[in-house]
Design a protein around this nucleic acid. Structure first.
Lengths: 247, 247
DNA sequence: GACCTTTGTTACAAATTCTCACAATTGGCC
DNA sequence: GGCCAATTGTGAGAATTTGTAACAAAGGTC
């Protein structure tokens, strides 16, 4: 009924291994905030495989576990009664999902393709955190970073036009991809256009048209809808910064 | 340059006393998550008075303290090079600011009118949390709630039209106001139209027009630009839920 | 009280995005 | 391979929001 009808529920957190949304500045300080402690907690945790479109958890499910993505892609989103959807994050291998939940999930987590996750019960996480105070601060820090990333997302969606939004998305995705050891110019987008649209608050048509425009402008090249080659990183960054706007 | 140029910085958190963005459902569960422990930490902390437009802290300032708003209104926002601004939250008396920051602030906090805050050093907070484990979980919980509120904000701004956004804002503000003990139908909006516009991702003209439309439709009444009387709470909720949209 | 600055409101032209329609492509399945 | 369903791409008109500009109202200063 209300737009804010599910706001009272607890949050679901996606924590990227090092960070979510760092800019393209010198990555020297990245090492200092490694997620090793957090990821190490999943040692020995049971693995689970999800098929395409299978849900890891849904809104209102009890938040019993946190999850480390090992393979594939998990799409975290929220739904509203009249069909509108907000994609909150895409969780890639190495990312942790569900940290920010309190007792009940406020978001859905769905596999965008065949994926594998490790599950760790919140209780086990709590127990480890009680023994290892360093993990406790790490958890808090991870949550704070997630908040910063969400605020950045909010800013992009709230203040930027279609081209700026998509350019920001491509740059952020490329950066995260590079952090997983991939070529920062060869970006794989395993999600559908509809997911990107709902992430950016646009329609799929606008996303598609903007992709085409970027290709025409020589900023990117696209193969098979999923493989994006970034031809002009600086140009894309200029668009993201508002090259079409004020700047 | 990049839109996401300051994304790598740590977050600044505004934690409302009980919660930020709860819906209008039965408030029975509110008591369970009281902020008493958190607020109690500020006992004996020094007070500081801020004049209108004075900053409590700025982006890139060292995040040395957390703050409890005692009077007035603190506007938390982020700026971009070309002048675009995103208001992240309005902190009312009872709200805590700065919890989510790591080492450096990523947002600015500015008094929207003559305000008073209590300051508590992060170190002192840490020390108390070390002694009182309950406070530690409370801090984590508060951060998680802030994340949920930000996601709700993201959703409203990303998926809703101007009328839905403003209606949501009015409802949320009224709810928070009621929680501070005020009449839920008599809402004081101490901030400027520009602040509301930047909070909702609209222009001041659109905000002004939408206010006028709500008044013409008999949903609200406005006096002196700041005192809003909600005449039709259900009608406003219907607009917020997408009465103009799909629904 | 007069003046000036800031803030808020309204009207209309301009721009962006959405909606709707349909073609092209992809991928799975028999 | 061929067929079907799902996804993606593209165009034209409609709707919403923005930008511009003029004016009204409020608040502070002298």
């Amino acid at each position: 009924m209300l737009v804010s009808a599910s706001a009272e529920l607890a949050g679901t957190l996606t924590v990227p291994v090092a960070e979510v949304n760092r800019s393209f500045r010198a990555p020297a300080d990245d090492i200092s905030r490694s997620n090793d402690i957090l990821v190490a907690g999943f040692d020995g945790a049971p693995s689970r495989t999800l098929n395409t479109k299978e849900h890891l958890f849904c809104e209102c499910d009890e938040a019993s576990h946190v999850y480390l993505v090992e393979a594939g892609l998990i799409c975290v989103y929220r739904m509203i009664a009249d069909g509108r959807r907000q994609v909150l994050d895409f969780a890639y291998p190495g990312d942790v999902i569900g940290l920010g939940a309190l007792d009940v999930h406020t978001a859905n987590a769905q596999a965008s393709g065949r994926s594998r996750v490790r599950s760790l019960s919140r209780k086990a996480l709590h127990d480890i955190a009680a023994r290892v105070p360093e993990l406790g601060s790490r958890l808090f820090e991870a949550l704070a970073q997630e908040l910063v990333a969400t605020r950045e997302h909010l800013f992009v969606v709230s203040q930027c036009n279609a081209a700026e939004r998509l350019a920001s998305f491509l740059l952020t995705s490329a950066r995260r991809s590079a952090r997983r050891g991939n070529d920062p110019h060869e970006l794989v987008l395993p999600m559908m256009r509809a997911d990107i649209a709902d992430y950016l608050g646009l329609t799929i048509e606008t996303v598609s048209r903007t992709f085409s425009k970027f290709r025409q402008d020589g900023l990117i090249d696209i193969e098979q809808c999923v493989l994006v080659t970034i031809l002009d990183l600086d140009g894309l960054a200029k668009v993201a910064a508002g090259g079409s706007h004020g700047a």
